[in-house]
Structures are given as C-alpha cells and as structure tokens.
C-alpha cells in the first residue's frame, strides 16, 4: 500500500517535472514558455518532496518534515521569479503572441522609477 502510494507520488512528480521542461521547448513565445516551468515544475517537485517525507518518516527514525521547508520555499519563490522574468521580458520588449493592452506600452517597468527606460521607450515610439 505504502509502496504503491510512494510509486504514484514519485512518478507524478517526475512526469510533471518533465512536462514543465517540455513546455520550455515546445511553446512558441517567451511569455507562454514561462508558464511551463513555474507551474508544472512546482507541483512536480512538491509531490516528489511529499514522497521523500513519507519515505523517511516510515523508516522508524521519527517523522521527517524538513522537506516541507523546501516545498514552502519553492512555493514562495517560484511566483516571484516568474514575475521578475516576465517584467524583464516586457522591459526588453520581447516579441509576444498576445498583443499588449492599450496604455501598457508607454509605462515604465514597475514602481522602481526607471526614468531612463521610460525615455528610451518614448524614443522607440
């Protein structure tokens, strides 16, 4: 029973990790590629870590919960890096399959007051 559950969690985790990287190769513009690694991979690594926690907890040496720490950390950091990456891509004006909404093109990149980039964006238009 435990063996089946562990196998299931390990396989799910590995499959999601693989699908995340597959998305990195298959999808066609940067903004859509961003979705693969940030989502599929967090669930993949999350379920691998749950499997590891179960595995070490059932070996008679007490509960092993420190995997929770890595899971928690990944769940906090993955969205932050996704947000920063997409902000950087917008700043570099990477080609996107989706059109930008009106009024977004002339704005500076976020609240960090980058006046130089504002000027260069205005010049580009």
């Amino acid at each position: 029973m435990l063996d089946a559950l562990l196998s299931f969690l390990i396989l799910t985790g590995a499959i999601f990790t693989f699908i995340g990287s597959l998305g990195l190769v298959r999808l066609r513009d940067f903004y859509t590629r961003l979705h693969g690694p940030t989502k599929a991979t967090t669930l993949g690594v999350g379920s691998l870590l749950i499997a590891s926690s179960l595995f070490f907890s059932t070996r008679g040496e007490g509960v092993s919960l420190h995997e929770v720490l890595v899971t928690l950390f990944l769940f906090i950091t993955a969205p932050v890096s996704a947000h920063l990456l997409s902000k950087a891509a917008l700043h570099l004006k990477l080609h996107s399959l989706a059109p930008l909404p009106q009024g977004e093109r002339s704005e500076s990149s976020g609240p960090n007051r980058s006046t130089v980039s504002q000027n260069s964006e205005r010049d580009a238009q």
């Binding site: 990790t17 990287s21 961003l34 690694p37 990944l74 990456l85």
Partner: peptide, 12 residues
C-alpha cells in the same frame, strides 16, 4: 528561465 528550470530539476 532555462537556468531557473535547471535548478528546480536539480532539486528533483
């Protein structure tokens, strides 16, 4: 993004 994915794969 590829480096980011590589480090998550390394954790796995």
């Amino acid at each position: 993004l590829a480096l980011d994915t590589l480090y998550i794969n390394a954790i796995a």
